[in-house]
Design a protein around this nucleic acid. Sequence first.
DNA 1: AAATTTATTAACCATTTGGTTAAACCATTC
DNA 2: GAATGGTTTAACCAAATGGTTAATAAATTT
Lengths: 204, 204
Amino acid sequence: MKKTKDENTEEQILEAAKNVFQSKGMDGARMQEIADKAGINKAMLHYYYRSKQQLFEAVFKNAFSLLAPQLSAVLNDDSSIEDKVKNFTSNYISFIVKHPYLPNFIIQELNRNPDFILKLKDNPSFPNLEKFKIQVNYEVENGIIKPISAEQLFINILALNIFPFVAKPLIMAFTKADDDAYKTLIEDRKTEVANFIINSIKHV
Amino acid sequence: MKKTKDENTEEQILEAAKNVFQSKGMDGARMQEIADKAGINKAMLHYYYRSKQQLFEAVFKNAFSLLAPQLSAVLNDDSSIEDKVKNFTSNYISFIVKHPYLPNFIIQELNRNPDFILKLKDNPSFPNLEKFKIQVNYEVENGIIKPISAEQLFINILALNIFPFVAKPLIMAFTKADDDAYKTLIEDRKTEVANFIINSIKHV
DNA sequence: AAATTTATTAACCATTTGGTTAAACCATTC
DNA sequence: GAATGGTTTAACCAAATGGTTAATAAATTT
């Protein structure tokens, strides 16, 4: 069983790196801290992932490949826009509650280095709006939903779902919420957001 | 005229620090780069602002005091919710277009150090939701808008307005927009977002 | 214009940090 | 059980980085 030990160490490194990178970002992360969290020598980090940059990219791609399918699923399934919005909102918020650092990590690092996304775009699992566009246009033309461009609707859906996590400290301060109140606020949004969107676009 | 030269240097430092901190964040910023951008010796940074931390805080407070009044204005004026939403959306987007790094900077740094907001909360210009809450409740009770909590509505307004700037690289990738297309997308949102919100909450 | 205060710089310093190396340690193979 | 090849470590290194200092230059005060 040659592989058990290496894979274990490699996994541990990636897990430790995930924690450190996602909470402190590329610039704030320290290789020594990652090594400590993984319970190994710093040289091991370089043994398995040549450089900080490459370790970071491994973590980043990992993170993105968790998020992307969530988006793609909604964009490509066959349910109505209304059902899509309802399902997505509830599922997505549940998902992020389990991975709270994810959206902020991705957004922050993409802003730090926008070229980074080019590496992701090629990936076949990268979210594609085409089908969603056709569907929105169809429902608009058939009077199921009010006129709106697919892009703007998509941005609105993302914004309403993701922003509350990204701006958590701001929102807690503005609404004077403690951790429990924030949690409740987020929990409420699982239905709140869907209703808000549906109300806005559904033809009466 | 004792002050011309110091104030000039101090200003130049703050301006350079703003550029560097807002695009690279606290951890990614380098004192040397700030000094270079300001066209002065690195020691001057410490002469005017003891440490990197204090220079950063000066920049941060400056940034926040640009944003806060924008929010407070909406929360405290006497117009109807509908007018508030319309005015805010258009004004806010115009404002951010002029200061594109601002929202991301503030959000990123508050996530890095959430205690930071405690220092801001005391400030009398810190946005206060009380009046807005009363107004939302009033309009809900009188059937002007559909039932919604003031907090959730506020979060939705912020999300729809701010998110597209914070997540610019993501949005450009998903919608396959170049810089011009992104600009158009944002420009459209000045009316789009207000309509989206009004549609959702206005009683028919 | 001498004295004094303020602004500015070059050189320096201690620490941190990503990264390397050579040796030791295992586990498997022969 | 010696040889082999992958794994792990301690010690080390060079560069970068925030910060300091002592000396100089420029204003301001007296």
